[in-house]
Amino acid sequence: MCGRVSISDQTSIAKGLHLKLANDLIRPANINLPPIMELPVFTDDKPSELQYLRWSLIPFWAKEKPKFSTFNARIENLSESGSWKHLLGKKHCVIITDGFYEWKKLDEKVKKKQAYLIRMKDMRFTLMAGLWDTWVDHKTGELIHSCTIITRTANEDMKELHDRMPCLLTIQNANIWVNKELPLPDRMLALEPLLPNQLEMCTVQKVGDEEEYRELF
């Protein structure tokens, strides 16, 4: 699963990925961002524009905000779940992060844990495949654009920390994932598992410690 990420400020993201930046867009960096907050993304609807979507997807057909977890979507269930299947081939997005956090259990009672920041090697940003949707709050008329991060079984690098991980993307695969001109089977191939040694994992003593975090970069 993926429940905490780190993100850069909007100017750094837009410049680093050559994305259009709205004039009124003000989003600071956040080194410990949880679900419900807004994630930076580019989508198949606007692949050249930096957008921010609520992290926890609300399906368009929902009568209210889901009471169950929707910040992650298992790749194994995408074509079956009512929350995700209507989005496949239609509403894909790429989440832009500096990395994500996982905790390694250090004892059987899980009283001691070591936090790790995990990111892609040799890439300025760690990109994750996602799905997005737009929901109308019928009580207020508010439009809410939201997203979920797709997860898969952990690869060899991640297994010692967790049995799941986000579907991480190279720049090439990120562009494939949001390319509406391609058929869905071709886009799904972009979610292929990472090869070994494509990740780097840095220990951190306290998630959210700005000074320690910046020393990692």
Rank of each mutant, 00 (worst) to 15 (best):
N173F: 02
V178F: 10
E160G: 15
K139I: 07
A154S: 15
A22W: 11
Y213F: 12
F125H: 12
W61R: 10
P66T: 04
P196M: 11
Y116S: 00
D122E: 12
L199G: 07
H86R: 08
G3W: 00
E108S: 14
R152G: 01
I176T: 12
S12Q: 15
N155H: 09
K206S: 12
L19K: 02
P35D: 08
I58E: 03
L195K: 14
P40F: 01
L21P: 11
I149Y: 10
F60D: 07
M128L: 11
C147H: 08
L88I: 14
S12F: 12
T203H: 11
T134E: 15
D157A: 09
L194I: 03
A174V: 06
A62G: 00
E211L: 07
K91R: 15
P40D: 05
L199T: 05
P40Y: 01
D9V: 13
L184A: 10
D186N: 13
T203A: 09
Q198A: 08
P59M: 05
G3E: 05
R54S: 01
H92K: 11
D163C: 00
T43W: 09
L216G: 10
L57W: 01
F42I: 04
D24H: 15
N197P: 00
E80D: 13
D9M: 11
N173K: 10
E200C: 09
L39Q: 06
I58P: 01
K111H: 13
P47R: 06
W132Y: 14
P34K: 05
I176W: 00
H162D: 07
M128T: 01
R119N: 08
L106S: 08
P196I: 11
I150M: 04
E212G: 05
P166S: 13
N32W: 04
A190N: 08
D24F: 14
W55G: 01
E160D: 15
Y52C: 09
M201C: 06
I75C: 02
F217C: 03
